[in-house]
């Protein structure tokens, strides 16, 4: 029975990790909550797991092909940057 589960592991051959240190549990959680809403568009090709630890946002990507990993990572970094900039510009002490 256990042997049947094993081949699945090799399918997600490509992976990478991203770590962003917000030095704030609150800010890291805000970004987490904003980005966890959008699921990966091709869950059979790319997986994304996120967590918040000690004010850091940790993101782990796994994909079946390098190009899916690249596309997913790149799109994620764009919205991550946007969410971070939004906190910087509209968070506490914002000036209009």
């Amino acid at each position: 029975m256990a042997a049947a589960v094993a081949p699945e592991v090799s399918q997600w051959e490509f992976s990478c990790d991203l770590e962003v240190d917000y030095e704030s549990e609150e800010n890291a959680s805000i970004v987490y909550a904003a980005l966890v809403v959008d699921k990966e568009l091709q869950p059979d090709k790319v997986k994304r797991q996120m967590s918040v630890v000690n004010g850091k946002l940790l993101v782990h990507f796994e994909a079946v092909e390098a190009r899916f990993l690249r596309a997913s990572f790149s799109a994620f970094v764009d919205v991550l940057t946007l969410a971070t900039k939004t906190i910087e510009q509209f968070g506490q002490g914002m000036e209009l």
Binding site: D38, L82, I87
Partner: peptide, 19 residues
């Protein structure tokens, strides 16, 4: 279009938590 829609959605989610 998906990608352009996501931009507004992400900003609104962050602002909603901040404010």
């Amino acid at each position: 279009m998906g990608a352009p829609l996501q931009v507004s959605a992400v900003v609104v989610r962050v602002l909603s938590q901040l404010w």
